[in-house]
Design a protein around this nucleic acid. Structure first.
Lengths: 167, 167
DNA sequence: TCCCTATATTTTACAGATAAAACACCAGGT
DNA sequence: ACCTGGTGTTTTATCTGTAAAATATAGGGA
């Protein structure tokens, strides 16, 4: 059986036989997979009133297990500064994250999980991972491994080429 | 060398050694790849004043090579009806797409590429594909093929599970 | 015919994202 | 001490996307 992107590729082939459409095989499928996943995979988060980027901020603070400034969070979560400002304000209002001013530099603040925030992420993460695992379970583990490996290769390449390094 | 997601996984491992974090290997990398690609891969489109979803509508009309109703476009491009309404209005204003009322059912309209629209997509598609190809070229073609195959497998699985079929 | 329900599309109201500007502050040179 | 250029963060204006309501119409049955 053929996936949607294969059908699309055959349609293009018919219209423009001279064109090299192989990039679609990778990029088209990536886009489509993520589109499908985004709508499905974030269900557990939504039940807790969180969006994926907000969850990412909590996760980042938890896994690095230390205070972070807004700019560090922006780099880690690959978001704009403005987006971080909004999300952090929301997380502060929900008392999942707290803010401490820097001693030396008064432009800077340091963000940390509150007790509540840590409890939430520690409860939510296994739930989220379990849910994602269930979505993937129809694919054999060794195939998942191959896929992960190739995606890692691609990601490394894109990171190098599009160049985003955190110090 | 390790990609970002591998680092993230090791961080989680340290914090929660008991947790099965393998879903991150696939889903985390998918998300990150698409994030990086979206910012880079749509550059040629932006130069022509188009967003990716608008480009997708033009592409859909071109590759199916016939008139489509707004709902058919919504299904094909995996977008909401409201989003299609807006994008089509924009494309009509730019005279890339034209609209014809249905003879029998006056709720329905049929959309088609204008001459201008067809010229644009036929010029833009090779440019876009070339650009995407260049982003991928550091990956050996047979590795790209393996990746495409595994993504197809995943996509088929997600399509089945999350169930979106076009008639 | 007149109603009722279903369908195709658009409009409305609002949430979320971004770029650019604004703001606040630091640090080094004069 | 006073500029000056740079950095960290927030605000503003604006745009895009969505859900839900509104609109318009079809088509079948009482």
């Amino acid at each position: 059986m053929e996936d949607i992107v294969a059908q699309v590729m055959r349609q293009w082939e018919r219209i423009h036989p001279e064109l090299d459409i192989t990039p679609i095989a990778v990029i088209g499928r990536l886009n489509r997979c993520v589109l499908l996943l985004q709508q499905a995979a974030d269900a557990p988060l939504r039940e807790h009133g969180l969006t994926r980027p907000e969850f990412d901020i909590l996760g980042t603070l938890r896994r690095l297990d230390r205070e972070l400034t807004p700019s560090q969070i922006a780099k880690e979560t690959f978001a704009s500064g403005a987006a971080v400002t909004k999300r952090v304000r929301f997380l502060e209002e929900r008392e999942l994250v707290s803010r401490r001013p820097d001693d030396r530099d008064r432009r800077v603040s340091h963000l940390a999980l509150t007790e509540q925030g840590r409890l939430l992420i520690d409860r939510l993460l296994p739930e989220q991972l379990g849910y994602e695992g269930a979505l993937l379970e129809a694919m054999a583990p060794e195939r998942q491994g191959e896929l992960a490996g190739l995606l890692g290769e691609l990601l490394l390449l894109l990171e190098g080429r599009l160049g985003v390094r955190q110090p």
